[in-house]
Design a protein around this nucleic acid. Structure first.
Lengths: 198, 198
DNA sequence: ATTTTTCGCTAACGTATGTTAGTTTGTTAT
DNA sequence: ATAACAAACTAACATACGTTAGCGAAAAAT
């Protein structure tokens, strides 16, 4: 009857969510069917519903899983007593790390959240807005402290965040340089661009 | 009977393509239905097929329209006799300008090309790869000439291109700063980060 | 004025999708 | 050994989708 194989400490639902992340990343949420997912899990489509409530629940799970991790991290970093540039660098490294090591989920959360339905949708958009505002606030603190070139903080946030989502291309391109190199290259370019010229 | 209104010099098909761009941007290619499109054009779904061959043809049209414009521009810029940094700046300004003024098409081409089908799909991917290589080549020329900080060109390309696609967020956020300000902010941050430190 | 072409309509087709109902099988606890 | 539960199956549903066929009206060409 081909039960889903579970290692210890990892539920069948978690396996399904993980496979869903892969599939949603490859095909997009709408184009990925529950029958596709079932096949990749090794089971009939209807069987999935013994473990999950709906297709959108899978998206919720993925999006909020990612969003919560980022929220937690920014709260942690905000409270450290270090210069603003270092806070930014820490957060960037976290973003890059997450993008590299939890590629599928982060990517899906980034590109497919549009397909959330409405109590969740506005919630998610809210969280994103708040996150960006906080990031901008850190940058502005840095500017006032003279650690950061005086630039438009909102634009800077926009550039920083979207640069990182470009790691997707790197991910596709068969790992030409190592993750560590990539991370350091990105930090050099991005943080390097923040320091005051002179 | 409500015919599609056409101003002079703009065909009914072009109207449909334009509306499709809007719709594909809002909902994504898969989630946007031909019936949605028909409604937004003001016509019944079946009537669309008097002007277009298929839903995917709309995507071809959009993706390759955008891709060709960028290809043409890079060829033009490559042949100018100016420093590499200025070539980069010109191309960046073009990207930003396109993203701001042909938002829907550029966005769709950027995010929905996955749903192209296969003679077109590989073609498109090829064009993208080539474009990036050429951009990287310009950066490397600049590095050798000492105009640009020695960085990993591939990573730089990745950052530059994806930063720009972040204008999407700006577009959504009710135009807080003017397009010109945005453009100049982005150039400052992105190109500013390229120049050699010290 | 008449013919031809363009373009819209209604109706319908086949297929794919998310999901439910009801049943059977494997696993775990008594 | 048996009862209880978890998790798989088959069958089917309603709906939504892209698209085609065929027809009538409007516009353009003669």
């Amino acid at each position: 009857m081909a039960r889903i194989k579970t290692e210890n400490n990892i539920s069948r639902k978690e396996i399904i969510v993980a496979k869903a992340a892969q599939l949603f990343r490859e095909k997009g949420f709408k184009a990925a069917s529950m029958r596709d997912l079932a096949e990749s899990v090794g089971v009939e489509a209807a069987s999935l519903y013994n473990h999950i409530k709906s297709k959108t629940e899978l998206l919720h799970e993925l999006c909020f899983g990612v969003a919560n991790r980022f929220m937690q991290k920014i709260e942690e970093v905000e409270q450290e007593r270090i210069p603003a540039v270092e806070k930014i660098e820490k957060l960037l490294r976290f973003h890059i790390h997450e993008m590299i090591h939890h590629y599928e989920e982060v990517y899906v959360s980034d590109r497919e959240w549009k397909h959330l339905s409405d109590p969740y949708l506005s919630n998610f958009q809210n969280q994103r807005r708040i996150y960006r505002k906080r990031l901008a606030a850190i940058i502005e603190t840095g500017i006032r402290a003279g650690e950061i070139e005086p630039i438009d903080a909102t634009t800077a946030v926009l550039i920083l965040l979207h640069s990182i989502s470009g790691i997707e291309s790197w991910h596709r391109s068969k790992h030409k340089i190592s993750p560590e190199e990539l991370e350091n290259n990105m930090i050099t370019i991005l943080v390097g661009g923040l320091y005051p010229k002179k």
